[in-house]
Amino acid sequence: MSLAVRVIPCLDVDAGRVVKGVHFENLRDAGDPVELAAEYYRQGADELTFLDVTASSSHRQTMVDVVSRTAEQIFIPLTVGGGVRAPEDVDSLLRCGADKVGVNTAAINDPTLIGRVAERFGNQVLVLSVDARREQGERHTQSGFEVTTMGGRKSTGIDAIWWVKRAQELGAGEILLNSMDADGTQQGFDLEMIKAVRKEVKIPIIASGGAGKAADFPPAIEAGADAVLAASIFHYGKVTIGEVKNAIKAAGYTVR
């Protein structure tokens, strides 16, 4: 027996509603993140991730309410990302029921944030979210994978492989590796990128971006991912958590 590969549905939340279409006929209100989270819990999700896509200060309280209501009925780990800029933001999310927090742009702007969060709450609480893509044309990074912000619209010029190594040193407990090239294509994960990151870091990697069918998941694990994350294919009911787990199991890996 060994550690199970984690299957993690991700819910993008905007002003308290799930964005990206949700098609579950058995849900009274599929746009309600709390109901959708409960459905995934029933389906056997190993963890849940909420991404606050707007994360404006006016919506902050809405997200706190969503997390709080979710944590009341779901007894699996809950990661919340979006708009985390200071240890105080981490504190308020943990207090309302989050178990881990995702940090992205704020850590790029100020890498000391990683250490400050890890020191106070432990490494395991901090999931560094990295939106990376392959550089096109003239290359500015050594690895050819660069970090982007603003959902892939803005280039940072930072080498993604260098960044994940640095983040590990600073105290990140886990890497949520999102391929901006694969994201939305449903053509499978960026396996080369997962391999490149696996070679350099010892902390767990959550692969994200590109899953279109159950068969897309096992190769990501083969490439070195410890967990797999997807959003729309679960929301659209294109594939269930159970089908993904069956595919992973059939490929010889352990699932819960």
């Binding site: 395991q124 886990e174 902390i203």
Partner: peptide, 10 residues
């Protein structure tokens, strides 16, 4: 090889 130990184990 991978630390922290994170996830569901027997």
């Amino acid at each position: 090889d991978v630390v922290p130990h994170m996830g569901w184990d027997t």
